[in-house]
Design a protein around this nucleic acid. Structure first.
Lengths: 202, 202
DNA sequence: GTCTATAGCTCGATAGAC
DNA sequence: GTCTATCGAGCTATAGAC
């Protein structure tokens, strides 16, 4: 049985190697510009072998997309679950922003691949990926509703639009982030300060 | 001579038809997924004929990219030049945000194609397009410096980072904007209110 | 200035040896 | 489970007729 387990582990390890290679390439080049031969090369295999683990390029990209969202969802949810009982809302939202941005910028090609290529994949894949994405958006709606219920958020702000703006602006950092010019944590703090308090002096 | 002019007009008109078709397709499908046959189809020609007007797909995309930035640059610059002598900075920045967002969301496929595919084109094209893009970023640096000099902007805000965040968050609206659920103008006003004053009640 | 035809590649995916 | 070999399709770009 340990023999069977070892085999399963090896198969899973190869699958992961393919997915890692695909996520990194999709992130850098977009969906259409990445070939299965390119993915296979980066995973140290021949193109034909990839089809033993996945039945199509679309199946690979769907799994990359969903893993990307699930990882950031998990980290932000942990922050919210831990803090919602005992933190000020400003601190709680700041921590959630940091969790999203640090995962995106530092921890995984999957999350950044998701941001970059979600709009480029075939319609059928995009609508499947939207199911998982919507669950993450709902988490942010909960976080913001929690703050509004406590009276800490301006009553005239449209929270659905704010959530779209928030996630969009965090994801847009991917296009210019350079770890040599400032850490993900510093940028996260600065973003939170602007989003919570604004640009203008008063 | 009017004969010569008419010929030039017709040639220019065909060029424009190709660029319009390309901008719209790039915006919808990304760079690599759009073929020259697709562009030619949308411009009512055969693929071979496109090469009379452009020497490669890369030449087409570079022109689309640059026209996109130049159009938004022109509208935002007009707002700044008109308002900087006689408007409050909060109103001036709000108007500039509206000008950028309304051009992006309503007025031209070129600007939205630029936002979507800038990160997908071959490196040589991207670095050429960056020259024009940097001029637009410098305009925003001027707008923000003008506000800071007047003492209307918090002294602790890093304006370079804010400019990156601002343009990134405006461009990100492309991914979710739906004209049936709210006009570009309403979204612009809401964005400006959040960016200038923040989310939290005080 | 636009057409047809095609050269020369690369693509996703499959078949079958090992 | 990974390999080699290949099919059929679609790609950019070019050549040459009209």
């Amino acid at each position: 049985m340990s023999d069977t387990l070892a085999k399963k582990d090896r198969a899973a390890e190869t699958r992961t190697r393919i997915l890692d290679a695909a996520a990194s390439l999709f992130r850098d080049k977009g969906y259409a510009a990445v070939s299965l031969r390119g993915i296979a090369d980066a995973a140290d295999m021949k193109a034909g072998s990839v089809y033993y683990h996945f039945k199509s390029k679309e199946e690979i990209v769907l799994e990359v997309l969903n893993l990307g969202i699930e990882r950031v969802h998990k980290t932000v949810k942990a922050v919210f679950d831990t803090g919602k009982g005992n933190q000020e809302n400003a601190a709680l939202i700041t921590d959630a922003i940091c969790a999203h941005l640090e995962t995106l910028l530092e921890h995984t090609d999957y999350t950044s691949a998701n941001v970059r290529i979600h709009g480029q994949v075939p319609e059928a894949i995009r609508s499947e990926a939207l199911v998982v994405r919507r669950r993450y958006e709902a988490l942010w709606d909960d976080i913001l509703a929690h703050g509004k219920a406590a009276g800490d958020i301006r009553q005239d702000v449209d929270l659905k639009m704010f959530r779209l703006m928030l996630i969009g602006s965090l994801n847009a950092t991917l296009e210019w982030f350079d770890p040599e010019k400032g850490s993900a944590r510093d940028i996260s703090r600065a973003y939170a300060a602007i989003l919570l308090n604004g640009l203008m002096d008063k």
